[in-house]
Simulated assay, not measured.
Amino acid sequence: MAKPTGNRLRIIGGQWRSRLLPFPDVEGLRPTTDRVRETVFNWLQPYLPGAQVLDVFAGSGALGFEALSREAGFVNLLERSQKAAKQLQENAKTLNAKNCNVHMGDAIQILATLTTQFDVIFLDPPFGKGLLPQCIELIEQHNLIKTQGWVYIESEQELTDLNIPKHWRLHREKKAGQVKLRLFEVMNK
């Protein structure tokens, strides 16, 4: 499938399959394409039912709402843009997603204050901003991912030095156009 048109994204699986959700024009907002989401959620499907999920750069909500549609227990969406965060709240209300919280603010600052551990963390920041290494460091410092949890990283292909912790085992990796997808399983330290 192509990128969403008319600033709407389509949920591709689960209870809200084929639902269209609007998202605003915000600089750097780049919803994960249907094709990429299908791949990622095929990888994660066995681990999603009941999972506590953190979508660090929620943007359009493509990853977080897809996880909810596929039986995640609870999803926290972090979004810096007030416009995008407001739309995320409206979309959660439209879907009657009571197991979803939208936190508006800088993802780095929010990560530094979290104390909850998650089963799945999505890291899909705006490209070219150098945010991934700092996010990974904060996730480790604050012990935000459970052992045997999953960290999905979506980045530009040329980004290679992420300073991945030694106990994060690369489970799957794929290239899709200009994007590199990586799924890590967090092992015992």
Rank of each mutant, 00 (worst) to 15 (best):
M104H: 08
L63G: 02
T5K: 15
Q134D: 12
G59T: 04
P49S: 11
L132M: 15
E158S: 14
A176G: 07
R10N: 06
D106Y: 06
L114G: 05
K180M: 14
P165M: 09
H171M: 14
L88W: 02
Y152K: 04
N99Q: 15
K93Q: 15
I145C: 14
I136Y: 01
D119C: 02
V179D: 07
R70Y: 00
T116D: 10
R169S: 15
K83D: 07
A97N: 00
G13A: 14
L138S: 03
V26E: 07
G50I: 03
R8P: 04
A92G: 11
I153V: 15
R35I: 03
P165L: 10
C135N: 06
F118M: 04
H103A: 07
S60G: 08
T33R: 06
G6C: 04
E38H: 08
Q117V: 07
L20H: 13
V186R: 08
G105H: 07
G149L: 00
N143W: 09
N96D: 15
R17W: 06
L77E: 08
K98Q: 12
P31F: 02
T147M: 11
L159K: 12
R182V: 07
I139V: 11
N91A: 01
L9P: 00
E185Y: 12
P46Y: 06
D119R: 01
G14T: 04
I164T: 06
N163Y: 12
V26M: 04
N91S: 05
G177K: 08
I121F: 09
P24H: 03
